[in-house]
Design a protein around this nucleic acid. Structure first.
Length: 474
RNA sequence: CGGGGCGUAGCGCAGCCUGGUAGCGCGCCUGCCUUGGGCGCAGGAGGUCCGCGGUUCGAAUCCGCGCGCCCCGACCA
């Protein structure tokens, strides 16, 4: 049987092995582009549902803008062009005709959406505009990895326009909080919410915020970003409105996104040497029922399995009944563990006799018997317990892999040893940030919101503007 | 851009040095038997050996050129 590489032996090979063996995704003939297979896409759909519900609950609506962006629009905001120029794919021909103006395949949609907002917004009464779009985008990456960095990927991008600077900042932080709550609740993934340094901020933004998660190998991963665009795009695209005081003003903008990269984060955060471990809330199958075949089991065992299937389905549990003849129970156990199903339910002649079933938790690999009576409620509770337990485990892991550094020597020493977050005061200068990266390969992940300034910069000894989270990152 | 490695069945690889009718494991198909932690047995399908050219009676194997992929370094962000 094809074995997957262990996590400690080679984390990045474990990662690709698991994705391919579990059939989440596959490489495609197009360099840097992957195929998201049904089992992987099911997770994306669950992420979409959970996030879309929250986005709408905060007053946003969905729309769809074109894939192609005229070159002249993309180049209107100076920092934006400069930041994205190396990564843009261009369409230069339509059929047999050379285009007069090249069309960019969107690397992000600020330009096209800003252009439309300029047409739609006239008055302060039109504000705020709160639009989200689910879309695909293309960024010409040199080095790609399944889910984490691919040439084409799927995401949600919110684009809003506001009357005042304060309102835009409030929106930016509201979404950051929404992302944090979503990721922690649904993906059982604890994150640090904070502000990005100037050198790491989005091309064209005034301020960028992110949520950062710590993966199983101790490297950090940016799980989402929320940008306060100030009036940069408003000025570049002429998005103006007449204010309450009759003056003509530029809107204040925000943009924010979450991508299919999140699936990679779930894999790396919860997985183990036996394969995937999905938090119940985003698991395509929350329970798999494996009937134990004995004699004429299709008459004796299967009806019981089907009855349980129906009961669980009625409780809103996503169930899979694996009644395939071709595979043995042992094979199915291993297979569904590899695929990360949170709970396995075994039912055979012995169980039926005793009026019980066997349950196995994927997270702890613990087996327990459960009474047939009140089974559905028991499983609903168990799923909630697993969700909670995965989150707690991840928090503990992060705490164990977070250190504070008082001196630069100590800082470097920590990063040479065990990977993880290192918290240290920082003076705010790009020089120190760059030097730290050159010396340790660690980047400034973000400046946590709840953390205040204090101490002196771990590198240069100047007064610190903030306590920063540093880590080697994906 | 520099250095190294690789390209043979769906996947992972052996064969190449020393040229002589293309193999192994997994997977796949058929049947029987099993089934409570990746069962067993029997039979079977599946190949432009990356491409082009050369040497040779004969090339997966030797030589030349090309293409593609991977790793390390540099560069870029």
């Amino acid at each position: 049987m094809t074995k997957i590489t262990s996590r400690t032996e080679d984390f990045s090979r474990w990662y690709t092995d698991v994705i391919r063996r579990a059939e989440l995704a596959d490489y495609s003939p197009v360099k840097g582009c992957m195929v998201i297979r049904p089992y992987g896409y099911a997770i994306w759909e669950l992420i979409q549902q959970g996030l879309d519900r929250r986005i709408k609950a905060t007053g946003h609506v969905n729309a769809y803008f074109p894939l192609l962006i005229p070159q002249s629009l993309l180049t209107k905001e100076a920092d934006h062009v400069e930041g994205f120029a190396p990564q843009v794919a261009w369409v230069t021909r339509g059929g047999t005709e050379e285009l007069e103006e090249p069309l960019a395949i969107r690397p992000t949609s600020e330009a096209i959406i800003g252009t439309m907002y300029a047409k739609w917004i006239q008055s302060w009464r039109d504000l705020p505009v709160l639009i989200n779009q689910w879309a695909n985008i293309v960024r010409w990456e040199k080095v790609t990895r399944l889910f984490l960095r691919t040439t084409e990927f799927l995401w949600q991008e919110g684009h809003t326009a506001h009357e005042t600077a304060e309102e835009a900042e409030e929106e930016t932080l509201k979404i950051l909080g929404l992302y944090k709550e979503f990721v922690e609740t649904e993906l059982a993934m604890p994150v640090i919410a904070g502000r990005k340094s100037d050198s790491e901020k989005f091309a064209g933004a005034s301020r960028t915020y992110s949520i950062e998660a710590l993966m199983g190998d101790g490297r950090a991963l940016q799980a989402a970003t929320s940008h306060n665009l100030g009036q940069n795009f408003a000025k570049a695209f002429g998005i103006q409105f007449q204010a309450r005081d009759k003056s003509l003003q530029h809107i204040w903008g925000t943009s924010w996104g979450i991508t299919t990269r999140l699936i990679g984060a779930v894999i790396m955060m919860h997985g183990d040497d036996n394969g995937l471990v999905f938090p119940p809330r985003i698991a395509p199958h929350q329970v798999v029922i494996v009937p134990i075949p004995r004699g004429n089991w299709r008459e004796t065992v299967l009806p019981h399995a089907k009855a349980i299937f129906d009961e669980l389905t009625a409780q809103g549990v996503r169930v899979m009944l694996d009644d395939r003849d071709a595979y043995t129970p042992g094979w199915k156990f291993a297979e569904w563990e590899l695929r990360g199903v949170p709970v396995r339910l075994e039912i055979g002649p012995k169980d039926i006799e005793k009026g019980q079933v066997m349950l196995a938790r994927r997270d702890t690999r613990e087996k327990l018997s459960a009474s047939r009576e009140g089974l559905a409620a028991r499983i609903v509770d168990l799923l909630a317990e697993i969700q909670r337990s995965l989150f707690d485990r991840a928090v503990t892991f992060r705490e164990e892999h977070t250190s504070e550094a008082a001196s630069y020597d100590e800082f470097k020493q920590i990063l040479e040893g065990r990977p993880g977050f290192v918290i240290a005061p920082w003076c705010g200068s790009v020089e120190c940030e760059n030097q730290i990266k050159a010396d340790t390969q660690a980047t400034l992940r973000n400046l946590p919101l709840e953390d205040s300034a204090g101490g002196v910069c771990v590198r240069c000894g100047q007064p610190g503007v903030a306590r920063a989270h540093f880590a080697k990152a994906y």
